[in-house]
């Protein structure tokens, strides 16, 4: 069980290929500069870094929310429209649950299907299924204000997964939750990933969370935001509470932590 830099030679075509991507905001701030990154199918990747390192900006660029100032984001295996623009199947989870307060859990989960003009019956069925999968069976008719922070996040995840996307992008989704709820959601997220085999991209500033969850940790540094290290974490899945308290986990966290420290100092 080690944490080691990722071997660069991989034969399979990546799901997302990010080449020399930079983002400069209108006020002149350079959010990220020269990011190169390949995301492969069904892998769990964490983007780890201090605040201001551009990890959220990078995630939004991958999602297509805001174009990069320079560089390209390619989706070699996804569908493209006539103008050559990629239409990847993706789900996005924001830092806040970002639910529609006027709609109940089921309606919120259905949203991506409603927007894709899926018939109401089918959409309801699939949304109910997905809600059950995130542990919210029986809460379909509950409004967001009736749900706790953790449950709202579960609805948000159900909504992101209801289309069965190839890639799930998450922007510090559990940062605002208490530790007990966060651990629970980490475990459940791993369960969902293990079962559904989507590519997971998880933005976090927590070394512990990134080591617990991911196969690969992309360490970023700030001013300007850039990738400093790409670590492989080959601790076996399934990971659970036992792993969280193991010496291996502590060892891996220390290794990742030191890499992060070096990255910030560099």
């Amino acid at each position: 069980m080690t944490i080691a830099p990722v071997a660069s030679a991989t034969n399979a075509r990546p799901l997302v290929s990010i080449r020399d991507v930079s983002k400069q905001f209108a006020n002149g701030t350079i959010a990220i500069r020269g990011v190169d990154l390949d995301l492969r199918e069904a892998e769990f990747v964490s983007l780890l870094g201090p605040s201001g390192c551009g990890k959220s900006t990078l995630l939004r660029i991958i999602a297509g929310l805001g174009a990069p100032s320079a560089g390209t984001v390619d989706w070699p295996t996804s569908a493209h429209d006539a103008s050559g623009e990629a239409h990847p199947d993706l789900g996005f989870v924001f830092q806040d649950p970002t639910l529609m307060p006027w709609a109940n859990a089921l309606k919120n989960t259905m949203l991506p299907l409603t927007l894709a003009a899926v018939s109401k019956n089918e959409a309801e069925e699939r949304a109910a299924e997905m809600l059950a999968l995130v542990g919210l069976k029986g809460f379909e008719k509950s409004y967001p204000r009736e749900l706790s922070g953790g449950m709202k996040m579960r609805v948000s995840i159900a909504r992101a997964l209801v289309t069965h996307p190839k890639i799930l992008l998450m922007d510090e989704p559990f940062a605002a939750l208490d530790e007990i709820t966060r651990h629970k959601l980490n475990d459940d997220l791993l369960g969902l990933w293990w079962q559904n085999r989507f590519t997971a991209v998880f933005v976090t500033h927590s070394v512990f969370e990134s080591v617990y969850l991911s196969q690969r940790i992309v360490v970023m540094a700030a001013r300007p935001g850039r990738v400093m290290a790409d670590l492989q974490n080959d601790a076996p899945y399934p990971r659970d509470a036992l792993f969280r308290t193991s010496a291996d986990y502590a060892h891996l966290c220390r290794a990742a932590s030191e890499t992060l420290k070096r990255a910030i100092a560099a």
């Binding site: 542990g135 007990i180 709820t181 629970k184 369960g191 899945y237």
Partner: peptide, 15 residues
């Protein structure tokens, strides 16, 4: 623990 469906968490439901 990871492959079975996600269980209910009591802390959330009580809220």
């Amino acid at each position: 623990s990871a492959t079975t469906s996600v269980p209910h968490d009591g802390t959330d439901a009580e809220a």
